[in-house]
């Protein structure tokens, strides 16, 4: 290239020398600086800040939108979790109530059973007591009756020999004691 370029430029060297391409003239420097400063000032002060502002605003908007979406999603997730929690709670509550009812029912039955058996025991005891009382009454009246009957019978059998009050009473007493011992023996055996 230098060769061909040299040939080309050779024809012109009398007009403009090649070095002038590389060495800026004063006016060139001056006007270059002017145009660059003008461009620099307008770009730095006006064009770039404006575009930057628009760009920042856009970024902010997009980020805001994304944040809002994320927030909404978060809320939805929270609501879902809460709903599920409630459902879970409700299920647990229902189970608990059922369990309570079951145990309460069991308790009621047990109580009723206990009460019934106590009642039965009470009734049985009352009956027992009544029977005992009646038996004693019967024994007392029997003793009286049997005494007179036996005396009557014995006097009839024995006749006058037992007229004597003291002897008669002794005989009766002995008889009754025997009888008594007999009944207690049988009653003890029966018990």
């Amino acid at each position: 290239m230098p060769g061909t370029a040299g040939i080309l430029f050779a024809a012109e060297t009398e007009e403009v020398e090649g070095w002038r391409l590389l060495i800026p003239a004063g006016y060139d420097i001056l006007w270059s600086s002017v145009v660059l400063i003008v461009i620099g000032v307008v770009f730095y002060k006006l064009v770039l800040p404006k575009f930057q502002a628009v760009l920042d605003e856009r970024t902010e908007k997009i980020e805001g939108g994304l944040a809002k979406a994320a927030h909404a999603q978060e809320e939805a997730a929270a609501a879902k979790a809460e709903y599920e929690q409630q459902l879970q709670d409700a299920r647990a509550e229902a189970a608990r109530i059922r369990e309570d009812a079951r145990s309460e029912a069991g308790q009621i039955v047990a109580e009723a059973r206990e009460k019934a058996s106590a009642e039965a025991a009470r009734i049985a005891e009352t009956a027992q007591r009544q029977i005992e009382a009646e038996r004693q009454q019967a024994a007392v009246s029997l003793r009286a009756d049997v005494g007179s009957l036996a005396t009557e019978l014995a006097s009839k059998i024995v006749g006058e020999s037992l007229e004597d009050e003291a002897r008669r009473s002794r005989v009766v007493e002995r008889f009754l004691d025997d009888l008594d011992a007999q009944t207690t023996a049988t009653a003890g055996k029966g018990n």
């Binding site: 080309l8 430029f9 024809a11 012109e12 007009e15 403009v16 006007w31």
Partner: peptide, 22 residues
């Protein structure tokens, strides 16, 4: 018209010879 580097040094329009040459 042969291309030459003279193309890059056209005659001045205004203020010839001064530093304000355009």
């Amino acid at each position: 018209h042969k291309p030459s580097i003279a193309e890059f040094f056209p005659p001045a329009i205004w203020f010839e010879g001064t530093i304000f040459e355009i």
